[in-house]
Structure formats: C-alpha cells, structure tokens
Design a protein around this nucleic acid. Structure first.
Lengths: 146, 146
DNA sequence: TTTTCTGCAAATGCTTTGCATGGGA
DNA sequence: TCCCATGCAAAGCATTTGCAGAAAA
C-alpha cells in the first residue's frame, strides 16, 4: 500500500476515533493533505476542491485544518506573511528547504538535529518540545534560469 | 565601549550613509533595537517609547523597522500569529530558543549549523542563502512553577 | 527651501467566528 | 432524530498605505 494511501486511512481513522463526521468536504481535504507532496497552501487546497465541488467554502478548509492539526495529523509550516503551507505526510517536525523563487518546499535528509537539540537543552536548561528548521535558497531549476 | 552602544552607533551611521534623516522617533526606535536583549516586539517598542513620547505612532515603528531591516541591521523573527520579534544586536541568522510559556527568547551557542547547511546544499543542489532555526520549549524558571 | 518623515485613519489580506441551514450517523 | 458541519458574511488583527502637515538638513 502506498504511503499516501496509508496516511489517508490513518487520518480518517483518527477522525472516526474522535467522533468527527466524515463529510465529502472533509474527505476531499484529507485526501489532498495525505498526498501533499508539494506542501500545499490553504488556497491550493481550496482551489483544487472547488473544481469538482463549487460550493466549498474557504472557512471549511480552515476549520478542517485546525481540526486535523489538533489531532496531530498535519504539520503547519506557518510564515509571517500568511503564506502557510501544510504537510499531511510527515506531521512531525522536520527540516525544510524552501526555494525563494518558485516557492517549492522539499524535505532534505538530515539527522544531526537530535544531537543539536540535546546540546541546546543541556546548555540552557530548557525542556525542548518542538523545533522548526528552514533553509531558504534557490533550487537547481531556478538557478538555471536567468 | 559596550556592545549595544556599538550597535547603536553602527545603525545610526548606516542611516546617515544612506541619507535618511535622524528624527527623534527614529533615534528612540534604534536605541531600543540596539539594546534589544529580550528580542522586543513592535508593541514593546511602541509602548516603551510612548511613555516619554506620547504622540509616537505605531505606523512609525513599523516603517522604521522596515527601513532598518532593508539596511540589514535588524533580524526579524516572524511568527505566523503576528507576534513578531526583533533582534538589533545580532542582525544575522542564528538559532533561537523560545519559551512557549513566558515567551522569552534566548540565543543558544551552536556552531554545527554550517556543516548542516553544506550537507543540505550538496544533497539537493540548492544554493542556500538564509536559514531559520527555532527550538520551542519550557525555560528553567517556567519549569519550576506548577 | 526642499524633501523626507510623521501621525492619523482607512485599507489590506489572511484567518476566525456567529448564525441559520443542511446533512452524517 | 440529533448534533455536528457547512456556507456565507461579518469580525479580528497585525501590518501597510494615502495624505496633509511637520520638521530634518
């Protein structure tokens, strides 16, 4: 079974467990989040669903994202300019690499972060619960263009 | 000469070099940014200045922060909930440790980040220009309280 | 004197919320 | 049937902007 189908089923199961109704709108939102290779924005999600479901409302997208976030099944990548992006595939904190030209977001492999977390915790006495690491740059396709 | 006086002079100099006028409002904002041990918010800055300068406007704080940012002399720590914070002491990217209870922000020592940047660049072909690393947790004073 | 800066208020843009209707279970 | 979920429109909130008067240089 492919990864995104597993994620889809997992999220739906989580919703059922918590006695939330499975509506067509919710189903459509979960489907997109579970695929979410490109870290979609709210507008992305809204736009895609609106094609086959013209009455879909933005408020419904927002409310469902809040809900799914509260179940721990989507990671919100918030940006101060309001261009938030969502990752329903890997809902746990992990580093991101963001192209400032085409806005593509990819997940690099990196595992030295845990050591860093422990180092910081020991040094400062903080109990560290969460983190966020973004690298900003220009992806290889955007470097080719002039 | 203390560090924050150096920063203050440096920012004022940068303003002069770029032919910006030195107004009392601007001076007050720079003074707070240059001290900025606690990574102040716009509201912090505005509130402090308003005490001796009652006509000070929020728009002026925002406009001056945009200006000083454009000169590269303040680091903006943007958060999606609009609780942005500013660091005029170390205007270059560096890791932050944020207490989710008291909202304190401290700068831990960490130097393994450059290796990580190179690793990611090599792995992905990105040209990395910038980064942002935040750890979220509970500081030692907040851990003591129940 | 000239040009930039400030203060005020209105505008923006994303997100949230109130309320009445609609639709899962 | 009984609530929860949805759609719509209005409200929120940090930030930006237009404009006329004030003040650096």
């Amino acid at each position: 079974m492919s990864d995104h189908i597993k994620r889809f089923k997992k999220i739906i199961q989580k919703l059922r467990e918590n006695h939330h109704k499975i509506t067509p709108q919710r189903l459509a939102i979960v489907k997109i989040l579970a695929q979410s290779k490109g870290h979609p924005s709210v507008e992305n999600i809204y736009g895609k669903i609106k094609q086959d479901f013209p009455t879909m409302s933005l408020a419904t997208v927002y409310r469902n994202i809040v809900l799914i976030k509260s179940l721990g099944e989507v990671l919100e990548l918030g940006f101060p300019d309001g261009s938030n992006r969502y990752d329903g595939n890997k809902p746990y904190p992990h580093p991101h690499l963001i192209c400032i030209k085409c806005k593509k977001i990819v997940d690099p492999d990196l595992d030295s972060l845990d050591d860093m977390k422990n180092e910081v915790a020991n040094e400062t006495g903080f109990k560290i619960l969460n983190h966020r690491l973004d690298f900003f740059g220009i992806c290889s396709s955007c470097q080719e263009e002039k």
